[in-house]
Structure formats: structure tokens, C-alpha cells
Write a protein that binds this DNA or RNA. Structure first.
Length: 540
DNA sequence: GAGAATGAAAC
DNA sequence: GTTTCATTCTC
């Protein structure tokens, strides 16, 4: 990792004397944030524990109840004690560091906490996961991007707190093995299940799936709480009637074909029942008879498989340098222009391009690629660029006018925008809202901290600012000579730490070799903050 | 490089 | 056990 010398007291405490990232690590005392439940403008729920800049959110649906939410990266025991939270936490070492949550996990947590699905409707978390998973797939892009953004922030915060932490799957496998009794085959429950049981199990699964789909659809329609409960009850009642009718039909059939295989199979009823329920549901859904008058534009589950998010935004901020970024923009610009305004970083091998960040999705390449096939990638890429504080011209609806006043950078991830702007507003015309990156202005991803955003000034706002390092005379064959490598700089608490860089160029991964190269090239280089302030020296 | 495995939350 | 996704491991 590349660091700037002596500016982050938090990180200074972290020792890594063995050269290996620790599996567990507890460098920081516990921290508790106090904030209000947020309400995304799209859905009625969104109490996200990881976003500490949450503030008061205007909602006609939910009251603004102050919530004490534990630090998301706090040790597990700190999660206990809240009146709303019962203790089902895994027993873990006090120094255990959980993984940063991904967008879905954040969404799921928020969903559970918001109690949109009453306990009466569904209390089993496995089933809830199914429902939430189906619902997640129907989320509009804008809403999903909010969660993606929160995941990026959570990831950045996790990185800030535990810079040396690395995900080590299997590290606990040994401990698990000790607990488990007997070989895996001994625990297999279905190994001796007969055809009858399997058929029943399949029927039950279909039935459960149908119910999950119904609940998810009702949620998509906007039904929550008591409304949802009523709607589910109605569906279940109608289901019973359908079943009664079908049973009658079955009895007639059985009488008609007495001695048939159907009547000799004692438990086939369960199968018939389950399949009928599901088929009835699908038929009615496909016919639209239940939803004919529903103007809700969102896709229903579970058919609404959405390929729009194949490239997660967080992939652009990978901590690991071992795996290449999955996002691979085509055709890097042959010669990205540099901006001479930054004496920010000087060296033989590198220069900094801050204000200029040439679109990797060039209209000069295949226009159809740019406009159609790559549209989603391009969009995500531009969102990422916006997060990185770069000027972009083609804004997503998430890029909203800043609420911070004139002269303040308009950032799609401006916490004020995120929290207060109406998502229902039409997207602004592109030219009028082109983002600017005035030097010295805080930009990029605003980090987490125990700061009252409603009263904090921009100067007090911590941020992660990115800088684009343009590699000059790049000799590593795996990197294009003009690949720009954005570097994430943490400016939390007045300190600075360069975390690392991600593959933002032509999709080629940053290999350890090239990382070494960059790091050594930056070693000893003096960084001058664009907005003023004391210089820092890169320490490798 | 592809696919498997793991684990993040929650009960 | 269940979801999605990020990350690492293994072949």
C-alpha cells in the first residue's frame, strides 16, 4: 500500500510488521453513530446503518424516528443491546473483522430493519432473503445505484479503518471443521429421501416460491406493513378457494378414472396442489388479471431478471490487486490530455491528470457500441467517474443539482443530494449540469464519519478524492502507455492516505508487478494539495 | 481464466 | 437455510 507520511493517526496505529495483512485486527475503539432513519425517495425504507451521514429525511410514510445504529464495522458484540435487535450474532473473536457489506446486504439489512414485511407475513429469514432477493431484482437502476454507492462508501470506510485487512475465505474453515461432527455425507439429509418425499419437497418449494413471488410483487406495488398483510391474506384466501375447487375436480377425476395411477399414488395430492398453486399464480400473473389496472411500471418477480448490473460499481474500487477489474471499457484513448494546472505530483515517470479524464467509451469508437451495447457499462463508468470527481457530460438521473449552493461542485453522490433530492425529478439537461471539478473543492466519495451533516460545512466534510495518474513512459507491457490510474486519496480528518488505484483504463488489470512499479515510482514524491495545505511525501 | 468456495446480515 | 455480490482460492 502506498501511504502519505504521518497524516492519518488512525492508520499510523496499524502495524503490519510481518508484511502479511492480518486476518483479524482491532485497531479502533467502538464508535456509535446517531442519526435518523433515512428514507430513499424511491422506496419507503432505507435505514442504512453504514451511511453515517444520514440525516433527516422527509417522508410522508414513516415517522422520523431517531435511531441508534451501531457502527457497521464494529465488533459483533456491539450490535447487541438495542431494543429492536435480538441477539443472534455469531460468537466471534473480539478482534474479528467482518467483511464490508455489499449493496445487496445493505439493502437487505435496511429492508429487514424497516419491517416492511410484518412478522405475521414472514418471519423466517431464509424466506425473507428469497423475497428480498426477488424484490432486489426489480429495483430500478437509480435506486440500486444508491445502494451501490452506499456499498462503495462502506467499502471505502472499511478500507480506511482496516487498510491491511484482506478477505481470506477459508480462514475459518478449519475452525468450522472442528465443530462439525462427522463426514459431510453423514449430514446429508436428503440422501435417503424417497420419491414421495422428493415430490412433496418439490411441491412445497414451488408453493413457497409462489408465495415469495407474490409478496415480492406486492412490495413492488408499494404494499407494506398492514396493507401487505391484508393483501397476502386475501391471496391466501383465494388460494384456499382455488384449492377447494381443484380438490373437487380431482375427486371427480378420481371417480372417473378409478384405478388409475393418479389415485393409487397416495401422496400425489401434495404435488398437484403445489403445482396448481404455482401454475395458477403464474397464469394469473401472465394474464395480468390481478394487475390489469396496476399502473406500476416496475417489473414483477421472479421474471424480472435484470442484466443491467452485471458490473458492480464496487468492482471499480477493488482493494485487491490480485484480481483484475471485471469492468473492461473498450478502446482507451490513445493520448489522454494532461492538464498542466496540477503541480500536484511531479516525477520522472508519472504526472497527474486531475481535471481531465477522457471518456474510455469514446464516440470515436463504434458508435453503436457506445450508444447501445455498452450503454449500461458506460453509464456505470460515468457514475464512477462522477464519484471520482470527474467532469462528465452525460448524467444519470442521479446527478442532481447540488443543494449546497452556488459554486459547490454538483456531485451525484453529494450526500445532500443523496439524502434530500427527489428521485422523482426528471433528469436535468446534460449541458446545464455538467459536473465541474474546481480545484480545491472537496469531491468524490464522501466518507463516513460521526459528523452532523446538516450543520457541517464542506470544509469539514471528509472525502475520498481521486486523482488520475497518467503513466508516462510506461514500460510494463501489461499496461497501456497511457492508462490513467485513479488513485483514491483519503483525506479523512485532515490526513491523507493514498490507498491504491484501480484499473480504470482499458480494463487490463494492475498486476502486482505494475503496482510495485507505480509505488516505487511514487516513492518519495512530494504531494502538494491542490487546495493548499501542507505537502505530504509519498512513502512506499 | 473459469468455476468453486466463502462470507457479509439476520433469524 | 436463504439471498446477492465481492473476493479469494483452486485447478
Amino acid at each position: 500500500m502506498l501511504t502519505l507520511q504521518g497524516h492519518d493517526p488512525l492508520l499510523d496505529d496499524v502495524d503490519d510488521d510481518d508484511g502479511m495483512p492480518p486476518l483479524v485486527d482491532n485497531p479502533n475503539p467502538s464508535m456509535t453513530f446517531t442519526f435518523f432513519t433515512d428514507m430513499t425517495p424511491i422506496t419507503a425504507f432505507s435505514a442504512d446503518p453504514t451511511v453515517a451521514f444520514e440525516t433527516v429525511w422527509d417522508s410522508p410514510i414513516r415517522p422520523e424516528i431517531p435511531l441508534e445504529v451501531a457502527d457497521p464495522f464494529e465488533r459483533q458484540p456491539a450490535y447487541n443491546g438495542g431494543p429492536e435487535r435480538t441477539s443472534h450474532n455469531k460468537k466471534r473473536d473480539a478482534s474479528y473483522i467482518p467483511r464490508p457489506p455489499n449493496a445487496f446486504i445493505l439493502f437487505r439489512s435496511s429492508f429487514i430493519k424497516s419491517q416492511q414485511v410484518p412478522e405475521k407475513v414472514e418471519g423466517n429469514h431464509s424466506t425473507l432473503s428469497k423475497i428480498i432477493g426477488k424484490y432486489w431484482k426489480t429495483l430500478p437502476r437509480e435506486e440500486r445505484e444508491v445502494w451501490e454507492a452506499k456499498a462503495v462508501v462502506a467499502q471505502a470506510e472499511h478500507r480506511r479503518r482496516y487498510p491491511d485487512w484482506r478477505f481470506r475465505p477459508g480462514a475459518n474453515a478449519l475452525a468450522k471443521l472442528k465443530v462439525k461432527d462427522g463426514p459431510p455425507t453423514a449430514r446429508r439429509r436428503t440422501s435417503h429421501t424417497g420419491r414421495k418425499d422428493r415430490a412433496e419437497s418439490t411441491a412445497r418449494k414451488k408453493k413457497d416460491d409462489a408465495r415469495c413471488a407474490i409478496i415480492a410483487d406486492l412490495l413492488v406495488e408499494g404494499k407494506t406493513g398492514v396493507d401487505l398483510e391484508d393483501a397476502v391474506r386475501k391471496w391466501e384466501d383465494s388460494k384456499k378457494n382455488t384449492m377447494a375447487d381443484s380438490n373437487e375436480a380431482r375427486l371427480i377425476q378420481e371417480r372417473k378414472f378409478d384405478g388409475d395411477e393418479a389415485s393409487t399414488e397416495p401422496n400425489k395430492e401434495g404435488v398437484v396442489r403445489g403445482e396448481m398453486l404455482y401454475d395458477n399464480y403464474l397464469t394469473s400473473r401472465n394474464n395480468g388479471d390481478q394487475y390489469r389496472d396496476n399502473p406500476h411500471p416496475r417489473s414483477r418477480t421472479p421474471d424480472a431478471v435484470d442484466n443491467r448490473f452485471k458490473i458492480p460499481l464496487t468492482a471499480m474500487f477493488r482493494r485487491s490487486l490480485s484480481a483484475p477489474a471485471s469492468h473492461s471499457p473498450p478502446e482507451p484513448q490513445p493520448s489522454p490530455p494532461t492538464n498542466a494546472c496540477h503541480d500536484f505530483l511531479e516525477g520522472t515517470f508519472v504526472s497527474i491528470s486531475y481535471e481531465t479524464f477522457e471518456p474510455q467509451f469514446s464516440s470515436s469508437s463504434d458508435p453503436s457500441l457506445y450508444n447501445c451495447a455498452m450503454d449500461e457499462q458506460r453509464h456505470q463508468y460515468e457514475v464512477a467517474r462522477a464519484m471520482l470527481g470527474e467532469p462528465i457530460s452525460d448524467l444519470s438521473p442521479l446527478v442532481l443539482p447540488s443543494t449546497l449552493g452556488e459554486g459547490v461542485p454538483r456531485r451525484w453522490n453529494d450526500p445532500h443530494n443523496l439524502l434530500k433530492a427527489s428521485m422523482g425529478a426528471p433528469p436535468p439537461p446534460s449541458p446545464a449540469y455538467t459536473l465541474s471539478s474546481p480545484l480545491g473543492q472537496p469531491s468524490a466519495v464522501y466518507g463516513l464519519m460521526d459528523l452532523d451533516v446538516s450543520t457541517a460545512s464542506l470544509d469539514e466534510m471528509p472525502c475520498y478524492r481521486s486523482y488520475n495518474v497518467l503513466m508516462k513512459d510506461w514500460s510494463d507491457s501489461c499496461i497501456s502507455p497511457h492508462t490513467q490510474l485513479p488513485v483514491l486519496v483519503n483525506e479523512f480528518g485532515g490526513g491523507q492516505t493514498v490507498y491504491d488505484w484501480y484499473s480504470g483504463g482499458n480494463g487490463e488489470g494492475i498486476t502486482p508487478t505494475s503496482t510495485e512499479y507505480v509505488a516505487s515510482a511514487l516513492d518519495g514524491v512530494e504531494l502538494v494539495r491542490v487546495g493548499g495545505g501542507s505537502p505530504a511525501t509519498v512513502k512506499y
